[in-house]
Structures are given as structure tokens and as C-alpha cells.
Nucleic acid binder design. Sequence first.
RNA 1: CGGGGAGUGGCUCAGCCUGGUAGAGCACCUGGUUCGGGACCAGGGGGUCGGAGGUUCAAAUCCUCUCUCCCCGACCA
Length: 480
Amino acid sequence: MAKDGITPRSEDYAQWYLDIVRGADLADYAEVVRGCIVFKPTGYALWEAIQSGLDQRIKATGHQNAYFPLLIPKSFLMKEAEHVEGFAPEVAEVTHAGGEKLAEPYVVRPTSETIIGYFYAKWVHSWRDLPLLINQWANVMRWEMRTRPFLRTTEFLWQEGHTVHASEKDAERETLLILHEVYADFVEKEMAIPVIRGRKTEKEQFAGALRSYAIEAMMQDGRALQAGTSHNLGQNFAKAFDIAYTDQKNQLQHAWTTSWGVSTRLIGALIMAHSDDEGLVVPPRIAPLQVVVVPIFKTDSERLRVQEVMRCLTVEWQGRLRFKVDDRDQFSPGYKFNEWELKGVPVRVEIGPKDIDKGTVAVARRDVPGKPGKSFVPQRGLTEYLEGLLASIQQSLYGRALKFREEHTYEAGSYRELKDGVEKGFVRAYWAGTREDEDKIQEETGATIRVIPLEQPPERGKCVYTGKEASQMVVFARAY
RNA sequence: CGGGGAGUGGCUCAGCCUGGUAGAGCACCUGGUUCGGGACCAGGGGGUCGGAGGUUCAAAUCCUCUCUCCCCGACCA
């Protein structure tokens, strides 16, 4: 174990992840409630930053927020055959309330297609009511067998969009709009995590969907993490809940619905995409705190001088930088340096007596940990310098993650190469196999087809498993 | 749910095998000296050993049950 009790990534990646969660004070285990966590203030602030970036995009694409009940009549869940099958094993049920057994049990929502479907059936009558574009920010509960902080918890927070459209084409356009303009755009631009946009195979798609799409990101251990999904539900739920409208020709038509979601799992993605053995690394654009200032002084008169300079410098930052002055005097500067590195604040500014004499400050960038990332910068023009530095850190983190993914992506022409590749990262391979073939591969290698990328090579190839001619290239990986 | 590991001051862990009534380091509190990469000295407070039951004169220690966490696997945002 290194200092701070952070296990190096190279030694034990899973333990490293847990050490970061604990060290950066993101979450606590809710040990009295199985599989749940407490989002501590630092962790919750990350979620709020994620929420804000997504919410903006969700609204910019024409959606409105609403909120539906946490409890869903159990019978609702049963109405869509594949949906029940997919979710039944993991729902929690409320059987008693008010001291009595309920006539019909409720389930705690694992996702809200059914309850929202019920209301949409009441709200949609005419083609003029469409599209209906609603999003909800909510908590959901899934009784998973194995949980890990953020990546998979029994209760988690997410947003789920639920829309209704007049035609398959409209629903498909919506599904892809969300994938590109909301999810991929947010995760790449704000979280600095490159993603592969693609379609899910039948094996991996949402229970009850016609087609599922996802963005997949690579973590630093080469495994894939699904960072967001968008589903074209076809008419499955519209038929199950009788969501229908009268079209321009006065014909009654079943509508087409979509649903799409991202969850607090994104916090796990953030950790595993950028952090290092020193602690958490947060991209500046979503960092709740972008700059921390550590004043340095020995005597009272030095303290006053430092405080004065600090005040002059930071007054300009209001509204331009999210910053904090760490003026706790019970900790030494060295301690603070390490603590803020552990917590992932992108930039640290140190101001001490020597700086005041020279008219400089020390600036340390988190993406280059320790002394190598530290330099002395003139006080004049500091705000602009910091803004530029934050942008450059954002760029650098994205670039680094993209380079990592490229270096850990392999082309496989044979099953042997596929097996080897998924040990180390993503494998791109031609595919013409069946669902059964995919099951078999998962059994043998632990890997699944993460996505069928939307961007396909122009030429056809030979299926990595069956040897048949294949028209599509897929990405295999072991997944979280 | 199957296999493995672990629950002892806030944290990391020793003690358990060979029962005798709990210990270290860090953290915390007080005072002083420190402060540009995790400061030091002195003094001090804090745990009934995950929970329940059992064996025993006596249980952190032995037995049974149970809960929780971690790792691997199957399932999944």
C-alpha cells in the first residue's frame, strides 16, 4: 500500500477503485441496508455536476422534467412479457402497509416504463399530442446479486427519459438524438471520457426493447463500462399499456415509445477513466471545485500579507472559477497538497511569502501529480492563465483516455486473437454469429459484444467465430 | 445464489490456535514549538470485541445461527 492507503492500480485494480472511493470521501457503505451506499457530500457534488450538464442537454433537446411514483402495482410489471422476465428477479416488493397486508403488492420501481406507460395511455389521444417528451430524475432499486459503490448499488440515482412518438422513424430519431446529442456529447465533452456509440446485440438489449443503443467507455483496466443507454421500445409498451392516438386520417394507431437513462454509475466511470495512484482526478468542466488555494506563511505578519494578496487575486475569480481557499490552520501545507490531490481538484494554487516578493504564485496541475506538475506563474494575468490551464487539463485528460483506449484496442481475425485481446482491452472483430454463439463466447472468455458501432468499416469481413462472411464489425470486451 | 476471505476505539490491524475480562500505529482533545510536498514533543479521552443464542466459574477467544463488507463466478445501469 502506498501513502493514503491507496493500493496501486497495477497491484489490485478493484481494491484501488475502492480505495479511491474511500480516500476521496465520495461514499460510505450503508452497511445496515444491503448493497446501498451513502453518497457523501463530495460524491454527491459530482452527481450534481453530472445532473446539471445532462439536464441542460435534455432540456435543450426539447424535453421537460416530471416525476412519477416510486411504487408500481405489481401487475403493471407483468404486462410486457420480456420486461417482466428481465426485471422480475431483481425487484423489491412492498406487501404490507398501514399495518395490513396489501390487496395488491407494489414493487419498488426498477425502472418506470410500466407506470409511465399507464399514464401516457391516459394523456395521449391525438397525433397533436405527439411527440410527448418527458424526463424524470429519480432513484430506482434493483436487487442485484453483487454490488460495488457507484458501479452497481441496490438503490441508485438516475434520469430516465420516456417519450412517445407517432412513428417508428420518429422514435428511432429520438433514440439516436439522445445517444449523440445528450449522452455522448456530455460524457465526451464534460467528463472527458471517449465513448463508442453503437447498437446492442439482442443478448444485451433492454428487456422489452425493439433496439437498444449504448455508449461504451474503456476503463483503465481495459474493461468496458456502459455509460448510457437509449432504447427504441417499438410498440411493445404502447401495446401493453394501450398508448394509442388518432392520426390525421382519423385512424387509431398504437404509438411508438422510447426510454433512455444514465445513472450514478457515471461517477464510477469518472473514477476509473481518469484517476491515478495518488487519488481521484476530476476533469475541470465537471469538477465541483476547480481551483484550491493553499496559503503559506509562518508568522502573523506573513499571514496578513498573504491574505491580502490572496484576496486581491481571488476577487476576480468570482463567477469565472469554482474555487476554495483552504485556510485551515491545523494542517500543514504539505498535508493539504496531498489531501487535495487525493480529492482530485484539477488545479492548486500556492501563495507564500516568496511569491509575494516575486509577484508569482505556484500552480500545480492535478493531471501531472507531484512536483513535476508544479510551476511558478506571474500574478498578473493569473485568472486568464488558470482558465487556459483548466481547458488544457480537460483536453489532456480526454486525449490521454482516448490514447489509452486506442492502445488497448485490438483487431481479431481469429478466435484465439479474440480470447487474447479481451484479456487486455477491447477487441474489434467481424461478426455473423448467433445469440447462442455469443453466450458461448461469454462462457469461454468472460467477454460479450459490447456494441455494434454505428461507424462501420466500408468493407465486409470474415466472422471471428463462425468464419462466415460478416457485414458488421463489433466490439468485444469484458464489462462492468 | 455458489466458492473464498474478513468484521476488535474514527481508520489500519494485533490478540483468538493453547478461554482469565482488550492492545499498537494513525486520527482525536489540551499546551507549546512548527508550517513552500503528509511536522514534533509532552499530557489526555475513547472500544465490551458485527448481532443473537449456547458451552463454561469465566468467552474477543470454543460451538450454532444470523447480518454486513471484500474478492472470484453467474446476473445487471
